[in-house]
Simulated scan of single mutants.
Amino acid sequence: MLRGWHENKNAFRVRLVKDCPVLYVTAIGGSAAGRVVQARIYPMKKEQGGPARELLAELQQALATSPPPWLAKILGVADGDRIKNYKALSY
């Protein structure tokens, strides 16, 4: 019974953010993360959190310069071009 309650709670939370392609979280459980990803929402874990404006500025910078492959996918970049344009892969 308790398991069903958690599943319903997670489904409710996903419906609240269903129009967001990216979800910033400080923590997320496995079941909730699975539901979020199934809804085509990408969870971004920021352990320290932070002001929304700063997080948005970081995201805007990534969009403008070289988005990571998962973000390029959201933006509609073709499969073959996702890694090619990802500058953060420098080792």
Score class of each variant (00 low, 15 high):
residue 1 M to S: 09
residue 1 M to N: 09
residue 2 L to M: 11
residue 3 R to H: 13
residue 4 G to C: 10
residue 5 W to N: 00
residue 5 W to E: 13
residue 5 W to P: 00
residue 6 H to F: 07
residue 7 E to Q: 12
residue 18 K to I: 09
residue 19 D to K: 13
residue 20 C to R: 12
residue 22 V to H: 02
residue 22 V to F: 13
residue 23 L to N: 07
residue 24 Y to P: 00
residue 26 T to I: 05
residue 26 T to Y: 02
residue 27 A to Y: 14
residue 29 G to L: 11
residue 31 S to C: 03
residue 31 S to L: 08
residue 32 A to I: 06
residue 35 R to C: 05
residue 35 R to E: 05
residue 35 R to G: 03
residue 35 R to V: 04
residue 42 Y to I: 09
residue 42 Y to G: 00
residue 43 P to I: 11
residue 44 M to V: 10
residue 44 M to T: 03
residue 48 Q to I: 12
residue 48 Q to F: 11
residue 48 Q to T: 15
residue 49 G to W: 11
residue 50 G to H: 12
residue 50 G to F: 12
residue 51 P to W: 11
residue 54 E to L: 15
residue 56 L to I: 13
residue 57 A to R: 15
residue 57 A to Y: 12
residue 59 L to S: 01
residue 63 L to K: 12
residue 64 A to H: 00
residue 64 A to E: 03
residue 64 A to Q: 06
residue 67 P to A: 05
residue 69 P to A: 08
residue 69 P to G: 01
residue 71 L to Q: 02
residue 71 L to A: 05
residue 75 L to V: 05
residue 76 G to D: 00
residue 77 V to A: 00
residue 78 A to Q: 07
residue 78 A to D: 00
residue 78 A to R: 04
residue 79 D to E: 12
residue 80 G to Q: 12
residue 80 G to V: 13
residue 80 G to M: 12
residue 81 D to L: 09
residue 81 D to F: 05
residue 82 R to T: 06
residue 82 R to Y: 07
residue 84 K to H: 04
residue 84 K to Y: 07
residue 85 N to I: 03
residue 85 N to K: 08
residue 86 Y to T: 02
residue 86 Y to S: 07
residue 87 K to Y: 07
residue 90 S to R: 14
